Deep mutational scan, measured.
Amino acid sequence: MATADDFKLIRDIHSTGGRRQVFGSREQKPFEDLVDLGWLKRSSVDSRATHYQITERGTSAAL
């Protein structure tokens, strides 16, 4: 179930172009929650960072 923080984060991601790069596993937790909701997808993972991209469902949630 989505929380107020989830909606705040997806709106922030949407307003800044729909993509986010995250460093460190602790910082990934809120983004992984949005992946579980179907609002974000992991577009790539490298040794230092994970890249996320907003989905259509995420765009709808952000509006």
Rank of each mutant, 00 (worst) to 15 (best):
L40E: 01
L34M: 03
D12K: 08
S47W: 09
D6F: 06
G38Y: 03
G24N: 13
S43W: 12
K8H: 09
M1T: 13
R19S: 14
D6G: 05
E56H: 09
L40S: 00
F23N: 09
Q21S: 15
F31A: 02
Q21A: 13
E27I: 06
R19K: 13
F23I: 13
A2K: 04
G38E: 04
S44P: 08
M1I: 13
F7C: 06
A62W: 02
Q21V: 15
D36G: 12
H14V: 07
E32L: 09
I54N: 01
G17W: 04
R20D: 03
R42W: 04
I54A: 02
K29R: 11
E27D: 13
Q53S: 10
E32F: 04
A4P: 13
H51Q: 11
V35F: 03
Q53R: 08
Y52H: 01
L37K: 06
S60N: 13
L40W: 00
T59Q: 09
F31L: 06
R19G: 09
W39I: 01
Q28D: 04
D46A: 07
I13K: 00
P30L: 06
T16H: 10
T59P: 01
R48Y: 13
G17Q: 06
F31V: 02
T16G: 10
L34S: 01
L40Y: 00
E56K: 10
D33G: 10
Q28W: 05
W39A: 00
P30C: 06
Y52P: 00
S47E: 14
E27C: 13
S47H: 12
R26L: 14
E56A: 12
V35H: 03
M1W: 12
G24S: 09
R42G: 05
D46C: 08
L9F: 03
E56R: 09
T16R: 09
K29Y: 04
E27M: 09
Q53T: 12
G24K: 09
S43C: 09
W39Y: 03
G18S: 03
F23A: 12
G24R: 08
F23W: 10
R57E: 14
R26G: 12
L37I: 06
L37C: 03
P30Q: 08
I54G: 01
R19C: 13
A4K: 10
D6V: 05
A49G: 15
S60Q: 15
D33I: 15
S43E: 15
F23Y: 11
G38T: 03
D5K: 12
T59M: 12
A2I: 06
K41A: 12
A61K: 04
A49R: 08
H14S: 06
F23L: 11
R42E: 05
A49N: 08
R57T: 12
F31H: 04
Q21T: 15
K29S: 07
W39S: 00
F7W: 12
F31N: 01
D33L: 15
V22C: 05
T3F: 05
L9H: 03
L9R: 04
L9A: 03
R19V: 13
R19Q: 13
A61S: 04
P30R: 10
F7K: 04
R26I: 15
S25C: 07
R57V: 10
F7P: 01
I13T: 02
L63A: 06
F7T: 04
V35R: 03
L63R: 07
D12S: 12
S47R: 07
T50I: 14
D46K: 05
L40N: 01
I10W: 00
L40Q: 00
G38M: 05
G58P: 00
S25V: 13
A61N: 04
H14R: 06
H51F: 12
V22G: 03
D36N: 15
A62T: 03
D33W: 12
D5A: 14
D33V: 15
Q28S: 08
V35E: 03
D33A: 15
R48H: 14
E32M: 12
M1A: 12
S15P: 01
K41I: 15
R26T: 15
S43Q: 13
H14A: 09
M1G: 13
W39R: 00
D33Q: 15
R20T: 07
A49Y: 12
R26S: 14
D46E: 09
D12Q: 11
T59V: 14
Q53E: 15
W39Q: 00
H51T: 15
S43L: 15
T55Y: 00
R42K: 14
R42L: 10
A62Y: 03
T50R: 08
T59S: 08
Q21C: 13
A62S: 04
D36E: 14
L40F: 00
T50V: 14
I54T: 03
D6A: 11
E32A: 09
D46S: 12
S44F: 15
V22M: 04
P30Y: 05
S60D: 12
L63Y: 06
E56M: 09
L63K: 08
H14F: 14
G17S: 06
T55K: 01
R42S: 07
S60M: 14
S60R: 14
A49S: 15
K29V: 06
M1D: 10
R48T: 14
L34P: 00
I10V: 06
Q28Y: 06
L9N: 04
S43N: 10
S43I: 15
I13H: 00
D12N: 09
Q53D: 08
I54K: 00
T16C: 08
F7H: 05
A4C: 12
R11I: 13
A2T: 05
Q28R: 11
A62C: 05
A2C: 07
L63V: 09
D6R: 07
R42V: 15
D46F: 05
A61V: 10
R57C: 11
R11G: 05
A49H: 10
R11F: 10
G38R: 04
D36W: 11
H51N: 13
Q21N: 08
G38Q: 05
Q28G: 05
D6Q: 14
T3C: 06
Q21Y: 11
W39D: 01
Q53C: 09
A62H: 02
S44T: 11
W39N: 00
R57W: 11
L9I: 04
A2G: 11
G17A: 05
A4I: 12
R11K: 11
G58E: 01
S25I: 12
D12A: 10
R26W: 13
W39E: 00
E56F: 08
T16M: 09
L34Q: 01
E56G: 08
H51W: 15
F23T: 13
K29I: 07
D12L: 11
T59D: 04
H14L: 13
K41H: 12
L63Q: 08
R48E: 15
G18D: 03
T55S: 04
E32H: 06
A49T: 10
K41Q: 12
G38C: 05
S44Q: 13
S60V: 14
T16Y: 06
I54P: 01
I13D: 00
K41G: 06
S44D: 09
F7G: 02
